[in-house]
């Protein structure tokens, strides 16, 4: 009797060990895609972004917009009223309307929220090369992989117009790639505004402060 029960237990243990041996443990590395019990429900015949899709000739689901397409959008609130993304306006181009001359100043109202946004974006998209201080000492400089990274406190950059900085962020310059595709228009202007604040933090003099503020300095 005991022997029978013992052998049943042993067979059970052997089966269990074999299962674990073949199937492994939870979370162990596997190269094959996960098993799906109802594949037609799990993967429906619908368009999902960035997937192969043979409906289109180039085989991708995410198509580029045809030339001249205007995205549905809310207008931007600029200092000169509302501007849509398709309009020829300094906020979209960085240039004075009808010319290729860069605008002198930021077309967006510069306030604390814009600066905070600019700082947030600067630290993500610019700091890897230009450093969080804008002095060109980002991580790429520290590990010595980028040939030349601009120090944003250089006189030549301080003297650029806001429009030209916007243009450089948007389209890139020499070894710097275009950041325009990564950063929406208002965010790029926010970065310009924050960069001005960064530059001011290096250029500012004691005399720029009010007497009351100067008194609080040590």
């Amino acid at each position: 009797m005991i022997r029978i029960l013992l052998s049943i237990a042993l067979i059970g243990a052997a089966l269990g060990a074999a299962t674990v041996g073949i199937l492994g443990f939870q979370g162990s590395q596997m190269r094959k895609p996960p098993f799906e019990l109802f594949p037609d429900m799990d993967r429906q015949a619908k368009l999902r972004p960035q997937e192969p899709n043979h409906f289109f000739a180039n085989g991708v689901s995410s198509q580029l917009a045809p030339a001249g397409t205007v995205a549905r959008s809310q207008p931007l609130q600029t200092l000169n009223g509302e501007v849509y993304t398709f309009e020829d306006s300094p906020v979209n181009t960085g240039c004075v309307v009808g010319t290729t001359n860069f605008v002198e100043t930021n077309p967006l109202p510069v306030n604390e929220a814009l600066l905070a946004r600019g700082r947030d974006r600067f630290d993500i998209y610019c700091a890897p090369c230009h450093g969080r201080l804008g002095d060109g000492n980002g991580i790429t400089k520290k590990i010595g992989v980028m040939a030349a990274v601009a120090n944003l406190h250089d006189k030549r950059i301080v003297e650029l117009t806001d429009g030209e900085i916007f243009n450089t962020i948007t389209h890139g310059k020499s070894t710097m790639g275009a950041v325009g595709p990564l950063l929406p228009t208002p965010d790029r202007w926010a970065v310009v505004a924050y960069l001005r604040a960064l530059q001011l933090s290096w250029l500012g003099a004691k005399e720029d402060l009010t007497t009351a503020q100067q008194a609080t300095l040590k």
Partner: peptide, 28 residues
């Protein structure tokens, strides 16, 4: 968000375009 730049605005956390890689890897 340097690469997955649409994640704050989209339901989908996008993969970067190769141009994002090339921003550094055209040199590095």
């Amino acid at each position: 968000r340097f690469c997955h730049n649409g994640v704050e605005r989209s339901w989908f956390a996008n993969l970067p375009g190769a141009s994002t890689c090339m921003n550094c890897h055209s040199v590095v």
